[in-house]
Design a protein around this nucleic acid. Sequence first.
DNA 1: ATGAAAGCGCTAACAC
DNA 2: GTGTTAGCGCTTTCAT
Lengths: 358, 358
Amino acid sequence: MPPMPKSKASPSSTDTSTSEQRRLQMVDIARLAGVSVSTVSRALNGSELVNAETRQRVAELARSLNYSINLGARNLRLQENRTIAVVVPYDAKSRQHISDPFFLSIVGSIADALTDRGYDMLLSRVDAERLDLAAGWFDSGKAIGVVLIGQWRHHDQLNEMAARKLPLVVWGGELPQQLYCSVGGDNVLGGTLATRHLLQLGRRRIAFVGDAHLPEVWLRRQGYAQALREAGLAVDAGLEVAAPFEPGVATGVLQQFCAMRRDFDAVVCCSDVLALLTIQALRAGGRSVPGDVAVIGYDDMPLAAYCEPPLTTVHQPVAEAGIELVEALLAQLRGQRAEPRTMPVYLKLRESAPQTEG
Amino acid sequence: MPPMPKSKASPSSTDTSTSEQRRLQMVDIARLAGVSVSTVSRALNGSELVNAETRQRVAELARSLNYSINLGARNLRLQENRTIAVVVPYDAKSRQHISDPFFLSIVGSIADALTDRGYDMLLSRVDAERLDLAAGWFDSGKAIGVVLIGQWRHHDQLNEMAARKLPLVVWGGELPQQLYCSVGGDNVLGGTLATRHLLQLGRRRIAFVGDAHLPEVWLRRQGYAQALREAGLAVDAGLEVAAPFEPGVATGVLQQFCAMRRDFDAVVCCSDVLALLTIQALRAGGRSVPGDVAVIGYDDMPLAAYCEPPLTTVHQPVAEAGIELVEALLAQLRGQRAEPRTMPVYLKLRESAPQTEG
DNA sequence: ATGAAAGCGCTAACAC
DNA sequence: GTGTTAGCGCTTTCAT
């Protein structure tokens, strides 16, 4: 037996304890309209089977009472569900929350894309070391698919999830031997564009800031290395700074690096926040940006244009990203095979690494 | 009749079309374990009634098959639901999406608070002119309560929602004749602290940037006006700039204002983003910050420390905000009366309006 | 055109 | 200790 409801009587009965609002159900509407629940159900779903006048009356009654259908029950009956889980990994070790504006923008973009298509979005976080836990939303029937923001260090877990036929799309880079569907910016291109621009400015000692254990960063470093090779320059491992995306940890790493090495004249950073932190560390050491050191960020977050100096950065297509992620997931749900997708990026020129040496 | 399921046969039957993963149910586990569904249900819920050995066996089977309970069905049966809707209004007219880092941080903070307490978060957006639509999540049974980020211009709609006994908490300011539960920073104090600090620096012509149609801004302006009065200064309506939070619209307004008026030496802004835009407009007009004009922001977003100059700003308690909002909502769900809550704020001193005139 | 009744996946009171 | 059974709120077939 279900836990005895407080009162199954119609709301019109003497329910003096007005403390909690009992949720209206179809049976209430039916009683008030003097018809059966079936008729209410049909009327509310706009069935042609029900008399136009009755349909009108029921619809108006429902609206005036602010009634709306219990979607849980409806989904159960219809075996349908329009909820998508969006999962943002966090770093459990450093207890850092998602705060990078880029991730948050992506979430907003996905929310829009889902809303436009009539889907609901369940937002949650998961330990970046246990991306596989994101599958719980599907397994529990709460969501029909999962969008994961970032691959982090667990390509393997993602492949396992895909092997289980979990409807899954991941924001991130396209890797060899990838079973899951990823959507992301062209990271190699991004790394190349940034580095080439710095070379063109005449910079020759170019540092790279980002943790190459992360697939996206790894790809960007490939682009960076490639551009250096094109220019006949060697990669100097000493100029690679494995700073994570979390500002708390990155700040220290960057301060130490900038204090130790003064033999570079440009930096490619893997996020705009890292670029900001780098600029601050450089200035603390008495170096100017872009004068002494030119700095390029990554993401083109909304605020990038309003920093000082405004950041030259690799623009990621955030608005399109939400749409692409959602469409890729919906394709899978339709039974289609969704191929990984790499979206174009471009360099947005601003002051931190200007068009030409000023 | 339900729409005929593809195949009700157990997964072990010859279901060659491996295209879609049929979701496992209790009956499948029951069959494989050779017990009834009730026993599986009890085992999975850790009931003492079931034989320890059986419980173990069932649990292991379920785990190995990656089975997990269909929460929709469970909720329906248990008349319980642990989903909270978090609704972020957007400006439909300017088609601006949530991009203010502050709102996004609040969302993250709420996500954490809900996760910690075992609740799920449904994230959606709503036209800022129709905040009442947020009630749909409750009415449809998808969520048991609603957290709304910001009051915008519709105090009235919020009061109506509360009058309907909708479990609701709103991030925002405490207003007279308020029926709903709000949680927010102390806006009057924020406005006062910022203005007092500028006065203490010797500034006398202090502008105010923010749209006072929004309750929070209105309260901050009260604090601003009060501080001016304390100092024996009159409020100059010409120094009030009704810039909205959307950067796209605000930029133009601020550029125009800074071009027109050059008779102020300080600005109190209602967000850090507005502060950044103001600084940019000032510099475009050849004025220095904080030399010619000191600027104070609001929110203390994560990036505020990394701007140039680093922003002096009113710190809002984001991490605590999520907890307070969630606790207030849960209190209502327990049938308790949740009072509006105003949280302390403080001034974070940085370079854009330094401790003392440098 | 409308109503009665079955059943979506699950839980819990009630048998045994 | 375990199985049987009713029913959460809804949709739809079937009967009228």
